[in-house]
Design a protein around this nucleic acid. Sequence first.
RNA 1: GGAGGAGUACUCAAAUUGGUUACGAGAACAGUUUGCUAAACUGUGUGGCUUUACUGCCACUUGUGGGUUCGAGCCCCACCUCCUCCGCCA
Length: 412
Amino acid sequence: MLDINFIRKNSQKVKESCEKKNVNADIDKILELDKKKRELMTEIETLKAEQNKISRGGKENNVLVTQAKEIKDKIKSMAPELESVEKEFNELLSELPNIVADDVVAGGKKNNKVLRQFGKKPKFNFTPKDHVELATNLNLIDYERGAKISGSGFWVYKGNGAILEWALLNYFIDFHRRNKYTFLLAPYMLTEKSAYTSGNLPKFRDDLFWTQDKLCLNATSEMMLGNYHRDEVLKESDLPLKYFSYSACFRREAGSYRKEERGMIRGHQFNKIEMFQFTRPEKSWEAFEELVKNAEKLTDGLDLHFQSVQLAAEDMTEAMAKTIDIEVWIPSMGIYKEVSSASNALEYQARRGNIKFRNEKEGKNYFVHTLNASGLATSRLIPAILEQFQQKDGGIKVPKVLQKYCGFNVIK
RNA sequence: GGAGGAGUACUCAAAUUGGUUACGAGAACAGUUUGCUAAACUGUGUGGCUUUACUGCCACUUGUGGGUUCGAGCCCCACCUCCUCCGCCA
């Protein structure tokens, strides 16, 4: 959510940002409703002040009590108008996307900009197989039984496949622990309110799984991490707060194409470790660089070929001012696929979740900035590892950093 | 799932039959003043109006949302969370 005061003073900038994202937003309407809201509030508050004045005098004076009754009725008759103005105002305001950073370009995916590439595309002196074939041949992933148990879009990690998956997670966890991020294991089910705060509602209701108790399944740990300090005033000296969390993530992926995305590229359930930071406003861009660097280091540590891409305005979610994706090379598809997404939400999420810190010097509370980055998601890393490190004999060379977790160097 | 109890600010904690400004203690931080490891005093949430600013005025704030009333921490209803007991427990 944006600050209405900011919109009042910078309506032109807000409009330009919306244009970049190709979002149709009626800023003038919002400003008009804001004005109307404040006028009604002032009117009602003046009446309330009068009412309070009379009430404080006690019940001695019958004339005054009659007057107070009239005021009460008047307030009651005005309330619905204020309510409806507020409702419309809040709806429009909460639909406004974040102001995109100055260096974010307009347009969609096509305008995404590759910032840097790491490693080299592997070259094979034999015909490489795709990850589905490799994983099936080596008995690492059981797609058929996954589908039998839970339907399409689910799979089972088996034997060395499960060990490889878990090795990745352990590698990530050790990395974040070394960096002094605090490890959180949080619930996988969240209330509607939490889903609102994290921005998944109302827009993405259909992309979430819902239980009969009106809880939704976690779609990314960003949801639980962003809600962790909801409605709190944090100590300035505690900032930045750095967390990481492991969770299985559940997504309906309703209507998404599965034909071209064989295997584990897009499933209903996948494992992900997420970094999250709550920072002072002036430190958030610094933190952003740190998160991007961490995600790159993790991927680079696996010796994979990948690239970092700065997203264009339309490709970012509405909460974010800037997003950089880490995309790993999938040889069989001939494209790069996202394994991490690092974003700075500035105070957009904090405003929604009412997360502040106390500036001791001024004695005032300000919104924190929130940032998140995957560190990392495994479901595209396994295909990348299998395909990029496959050998002529159909075996897989295990990345060096994972060998101590796996207990083997090669999968045959 | 059932029965009972509780929820007041950072923490602890009071409030007579509904009545003006929610008693008080402690903590932390800031400001002022005095200086022997510190003390004393003042201040501390949200929003609106006003002001260049300082300030001032007003409204809201006792888990959340409603209701009754001129007036609600207190009465009524619904919900949330925690505690105790019972039931269920692949």
